[in-house]
Design a protein around this nucleic acid. Structure first.
Lengths: 245, 245
DNA sequence: TCAGGCGGATTGTCGGACGATACGCCCTCC
DNA sequence: GGAGGGCGTATCGTCCGACAATCCGCCTGA
């Protein structure tokens, strides 16, 4: 019995080689990649092959082109890109709004509880800012949504855990469309959101772990109630529109 | 003030066009993609350009090549690919083992609690199988690890929530190396793992939400204790080796 | 000193070519 | 009639080379 021998095409080997260099930090964040011609010489392959490898790295978010520039620079795939990848995958899996809501309902309260212990003054300021913006600028649904998501992000950031932040991001993006429907369709939604956000903020300020958890949980449960009031089915599949970043 | 006008290169537009078709299901899972030549004709661009677009889709996991075949087929990016993407990103963010552990400690108990309500007989069988395999085949650390991860996956699956499953995957992969160190370095680890797994299994069988949560939580806390016993720093960055899938 | 101009470097896209190989068809042989 | 094997072709992987667009750095002149 022989192991199934596997011939990787050159472009993949190339991509892997460069990726490895990035992961091991010998190509650092912000550093410009060698030019295509140079890579083509160094690896002794044709430039077309190099380009195929580069497209792979590019779509992985490991290299990016700064706006209006030619050279590719090494970057870390940010939250937005991860959210894109995960969101797309979940959408293709026909995941329902309910599942996303559940996941959010599971992550966010815990993050808030965690955050109640560690939050710094700066954290609070960020949350308060998001809260303020929501209260002052929530007439337009789209803008209200932006502020709501900002609030979530700010609260999650207090946990000091980047894994949570990265996990949260796709969930928010997936909830966004239906959440917007809900806010637009339920008159009392804005008031309830304001209240919940205030309570959460207070709990974090007071470093009250349980209150933070509870209010965040209630906040999210309110979403669910809002969905029912607005006749938004929780069983529908999450939507995903490719961000043409 | 004009919006910064943005000229997308052809290969990106192309990739986006195909991606859209996949997301809207007009290209379905398992279906073969048109040949490069055909795409090149249809879109009226050079084949090299088509290939660059395909590399993007390929690295996004939206199209794949089945082992030893030429044609690309449409696929959904599975858990493994997501784990890859997320894991790489987290590793590049210099995320620590502690952060991953925290996230796991947050997700898994909640998933178990959720699962205690919904678990089916089949779920239990899967968990029991993983448990059995661990008890019978945990001498070799690598194999023990495989069974431990399988246990986690099986438990999480009971929650019936694919978002959780997808979230869990990268966490497990990231924990794996240090977890292996821990299991190898702490003599009593295997016994404690067996106990915890059994308790979790029992809780799920009895549909005891709180017991499931508690034991999963304890299980994970035990990991942390094990890390200390094995002198594994929780502050170290998570490692990531690119899987050359 | 700095705006503007100029030339080289780099990317994006193209036309075309060629070997390797996976696939499907057909043919033979049992 | 079905299984196995051989052959032609479609398709991929890689390469060569070319050229326009444009970004960048340098130099010049006011």
């Amino acid at each position: 019995m022989f192991p199934p021998l596997r011939v990787e095409p050159t472009y993949r080997k190339l991509a892997l080689a460069i990726e490895t260099r990035i992961l091991e930090r010998s190509l650092r964040d912000g550093e410009p990649l060698p030019t295509e011609a140079e890579l083509s010489t160094q690896f002794d392959v044709h430039r077309s092959t190099v380009r195929e490898a580069l497209r792979e790295l590019e779509s992985a978010g490991l290299v990016t082109r700064r706006r209006g520039t030619k050279r590719l620079v090494v970057t870390r795939p940010g939250a937005a890109r991860i959210a894109d990848t995960v969101g797309r995958a979940l959408s293709l899996e026909d995941v329902t709004v309910l599942e996303v809501w559940e996941a959010l309902h599971l992550v966010a309260p815990a993050a808030a509880a965690n955050g109640a212990r560690r939050r710094t003054a700066a954290d609070l300021a960020a949350i308060e800012a998001a809260y303020q913006r929501f209260t002052e600028d929530s007439v337009d649904t789209a803008r209200a949504l932006v502020h709501m998501l900002a609030f979530f992000r700010a609260v999650t950031r207090t946990s000091g855990n980047r894994v949570l932040m990265l996990t949260l991001e796709p969930l928010l993006k997936l909830m966004e469309p239906t959440l917007a429907q809900m806010v637009a369709g339920v008159p009392q939604a804005r008031a309830r959101i304001t209240t919940a956000q205030r309570r959460i903020l207070e709990a974090l300020t007071a470093r009250d772990t349980e209150a933070a958890r509870t209010w965040m949980s209630r906040y999210l449960r309110d979403f669910r109630r809002g969905y029912e009031l607005a006749s938004i089915s929780l069983e529908q599949r999450v939507a995903w529109r490719s961000s043409n970043r």
